[in-house]
């Protein structure tokens, strides 16, 4: 099948992950992965982002498919159940708002900037080498550390399920995918 320009968005996803090791402020670019799917689903009522433009999904398809880094087994039933998908979305949102709260505390001066990336919501990895000071408020950097933690955690989870199950198993429980599907369902109920 003929490749289109959007079949190469995985390059941006990979670059994004690499840039976070050199300058954490690039983490802000990850907001595109949050806003674009929401805008598409709200405005057009489709999952166009998942279907075409998700660089992360493409990266998993490439690693697990072409590079063969996947066992290609069926994902367990509980992982594709609505309870798990909606529960994971809720958990993800709670952790996301906690991260925003911590950012607010740094902006308010109630807490110092922590130059750590929290992997899987528990492992605090020193990440000071990627912060070189900024003209902006430390809160800007705190959001970058927090947001990169979210992005790295979801990538690691996606890589684990890619290895264990099918390449794009992450898509089954991806919080953005679940959220945009809920928006599409709600929009289609309206019409």
């Amino acid at each position: 099948m003929k490749k289109r320009w959007y079949d190469y968005i995985w390059v941006f996803s990979l670059t994004y992950l690499i840039l976070g090791f050199f300058n954490i402020l690039f983490a802000w670019l990850g907001l595109l992965c949050f806003f674009i799917p929401l805008i598409i689903s709200v405005s057009r009522g489709t999952k166009g982002y998942c279907n075409r433009y998700c660089g992360r999904g493409q990266l998993f398809a490439l690693l697990g498919g072409r590079f063969g880094l996947s066992r290609r087994r069926d994902i367990p039933g509980w992982m594709k159940s609505k309870g798990f998908r909606y529960g994971f979305l809720a958990f993800f949102l709670v952790m996301f708002f906690l991260m925003l709260w911590n950012t607010c505390l740094v902006f308010a001066g109630a807490r110092d900037l922590k130059q750590v990336v929290t992997l899987l919501w528990t492992l605090k990895l020193p990440w000071h080498w990627a912060y070189h000071g900024t003209l902006f408020h430390p809160g800007v950097a705190q959001f970058a550390f927090g947001f990169y933690s979210v992005m790295l955690t979801s990538t690691v989870l996606g890589l684990i399920t890619m290895l264990l199950f099918k390449p794009r198993s992450w898509c089954v429980y991806c919080p953005m995918g679940t959220m945009t599907q809920l928006i599409c369902k709600a929009k289609n109920r309206e019409t």
């Binding site: 999952k47 998942c50 279907n51 398809a61 594709k80 794009r168 898509c171 089954v172 679940t178």
Partner: peptide
Amino acid sequence: ASCVACGCCVKVCP
């Protein structure tokens, strides 16, 4: 009812 609408199937259908 169980489909997540990810579109992986669309990409591979010849």
